[in-house]
Amino acid sequence: MRPAVRCFGLAAPLLLAASVAHGIEQGEPRSGIAFASPETRAMQADDTANPGLFWVLDGEQLWAKREGAAQKSCGDCHGAASASMKGIAARYPAFDDKTGQAVDLTGRINLCRTRHQQATPLPHEGKEMLALTAFVGFQSRGLPMAPPADPRLAPARAQGEALFTQRMGQLDLSCANCHEANWQGRLGGSPITQGQSNAYPLYRLEWQGLGSLQRRMRACMVGVRAEPFDYGAPEFVALEAFLATRAKGLPVETPGVRP
């Protein structure tokens, strides 16, 4: 079943014509939480009210669970996540030597599963994968996004930037048309935001659950009536690599809360 199309698309060309283009000034990225209502901000800030913490707690259990033919848990190699995973999510996507490609956190967890645990990869948007990425991301909460200065990531970042500015879909809109040129505006009553990637995976009230950055990007692609890439597609990893450089310096908020 295709995800439901949100009907905000029609207003977009009118809005683009009416508003002045504001590029994001250098060194001034703004997290999506800055655009949220005070209630949503309070929900994210309070660990007893943030439903994303349920996934973090599940992830903590999965971290210690022995899996696969090797009967190893994440903790058997990495030790306590509070020490070994601190700052990791802030640095992803990173370059994987063996495959010679950029990998995001989800991809890295599945590589760990197949290489070291000899287990089957987890489905991208499944509860277990979201719990693990939320738990690993949670260890970096509050730390600034710090994409590594790895020249091998340059091709992926360049591809991501090209995709970010490439018009697509029946509405012929690029990510940048909204999230660079019109992030101060509103669309269908909702703030557009800069499309920053520092709070994923996050709890979206509309989803009634936790979702990954790729789910968010797929929803945007469906919104402009483009054919979304598959989960885990290299295009999405490239976009994530570019978005990480764009969000540099913003604090990691995992698990964020958004409307």
Partner: peptide, 8 residues
Amino acid sequence: VSANPFLS
């Protein structure tokens, strides 16, 4: 009522 109901 939404998923994950929160009461205060």
